[in-house]
Computed example of a mutant assay.
Amino acid sequence: MVEPLARDRTRLLELLTERSFERRRVVLSSGKESDFYIDCKRTALLAEGHFLIGRLFLDAIRREAPTAVGAGGLTLGADPLASAVALTSYLAGQPLHAFIVRKEPKGHGTGQWIEGLSALGPGAPVAILEDVVTTGGSTLKAIERAQSEGLKVLGAFALVDRLEGGREAVEATGHRLTTLFTRKDFIP
Rank of each mutant, 00 (worst) to 15 (best):
E3M: 11
E3V: 10
E3H: 13
P4D: 09
P4T: 09
R7T: 07
T10Q: 15
T10N: 11
T10G: 11
R11E: 15
L12C: 05
L16V: 08
T17A: 11
T17E: 02
E18N: 14
R19G: 02
S20F: 01
S20D: 07
F21C: 05
E22H: 12
R23I: 14
R23N: 05
R24W: 03
V27R: 15
L28S: 09
G31D: 05
K32C: 07
E33L: 10
E33I: 08
F36Q: 04
Y37V: 04
D39Q: 13
C40I: 01
K41R: 15
R42K: 15
A44K: 13
A44F: 12
A44W: 11
A44V: 06
A47P: 14
G49D: 09
H50L: 14
H50R: 14
L52H: 09
I53S: 06
G54N: 08
G54H: 02
D59M: 05
R62C: 12
R63E: 15
E64L: 08
A68F: 02
A68T: 06
A68M: 05
G72S: 08
G73S: 06
G73M: 05
L74W: 11
L76K: 10
A78E: 04
D79Q: 00
D79L: 12
D79H: 03
P80C: 09
A82H: 03
A84E: 11
A86G: 10
A86E: 15
A86M: 15
L87T: 09
S89I: 10
S89P: 09
Y90H: 14
Y90E: 12
L91W: 13
L96N: 05
F99L: 02
I100F: 15
I100D: 08
V101G: 03
R102Y: 13
E104S: 14
E104N: 13
E104Y: 10
P105Q: 03
T110H: 12
W113K: 06
W113Q: 12
I114K: 02
E115F: 05
E115L: 08
G116Y: 00
L117G: 04
L120K: 10
L120R: 11
P122M: 09
V126P: 02
L129Y: 02
E130I: 00
E130D: 12
D131P: 00
D131I: 00
V132W: 09
V132K: 00
V133G: 00
G136M: 03
G136T: 01
T139I: 02
K141C: 07
A142N: 05
R145V: 15
E149T: 02
G150T: 07
L154V: 03
G155S: 13
A156H: 03
A156V: 05
A158Y: 02
L159C: 07
E164L: 01
R167N: 00
R167I: 01
E168A: 13
A169Q: 09
A169K: 06
V170Y: 00
T173Q: 11
R176D: 14
R176P: 04
F186V: 12
I187G: 04
I187N: 06
P188V: 03
